[in-house]
């Protein structure tokens, strides 16, 4: 039987969840025995060319590209996992959610104290650029998510145990400390 195929992506996140994934240290060798990687920043494969079994997504959706990538993952992966606070709740980027998007843009490009001269109040609007959404959305508000791995970032052990349990079909048995944050 061929190995399950894993794809990953980082949307509106900080890549910390992916860094945490790499924190599994030498277990990465075991991981390679267990699964194959497809589209992922880890191997730099950029497009889906086959159906995957597990999609792991870090970060929420703050722009149209995030939504597009997320929907593509849903189409191409049997199981989708929301990885980390931003994917599950919007996280730090969602702190802008109470502020109108126009105000955020003006602060970022026109009025903020770190903005250089922008007397014409130009804001990025090239059609090549993704469009900023009115707020940052958690993944499950846009597509169906099968599993959630909490944390900021989720501990390497949690990611490891969860992926191994999913692939081997064994029961996920994680100590409380792994998902306890206070």
């Amino acid at each position: 039987m061929s190995k399950p195929i894993v794809a990953t992506a980082s949307l509106a996140g900080c890549f910390g969840c992916h860094m945490s994934l790499l924190d599994i240290d030498e277990r990465i060798l075991k991981l390679i025995e267990l699964v194959d990687f497809h589209k992922s920043p880890i191997n730099d494969i950029k497009t889906f060319t086959k159906q995957c079994d597990i999609g792991i997504i870090e970060g929420g959706c703050c722009n149209t590209e995030n939504v597009e990538v997320l929907r593509e993952f849903r189409k191409n992966c049997k199981i989708l996992i929301s990885l980390g606070e931003c994917a599950i709740m919007g996280g730090l980027p969602a702190m802008r959610n109470g502020i109108p998007v126009r105000e955020c843009l003006e602060e970022a490009y026109c009025d903020g104290i770190t903005v250089g001269e922008n007397t014409e109040r130009i804001m990025p609007n090239d059609e090549e650029l993704p469009i900023i959404l009115d707020k940052v959305y958690p993944l499950h508000e846009i597509v169906k998510i099968d599993y959630y791995l909490p944390g900021c970032a989720p501990r390497a052990d949690l990611i490891w145990e969860a992926v191994v349990a999913l692939v081997t079909g064994n029961e996920l048995n994680i100590p409380y400390e792994l998902v306890k944050f206070d």
């Binding site: 149209t64 939504v67 109108p100 998007v101 126009r102 843009l105 003006e106 804001m123 990025p124 609007n125 059609e127 469009i131 900023i132 959404l133 009115d134 707020k135 959305y137 508000e141 846009i142 597509v143």
Partner: peptide, 18 residues
């Protein structure tokens, strides 16, 4: 999903004039 792409981008497109 209650997500509505059209609604979600309206405000920022207007703000940046695109």
């Amino acid at each position: 999903s209650d997500f509505d792409m059209e609604k979600a981008i309206a405000e920022s497109c207007e703000a940046v004039n695109r």
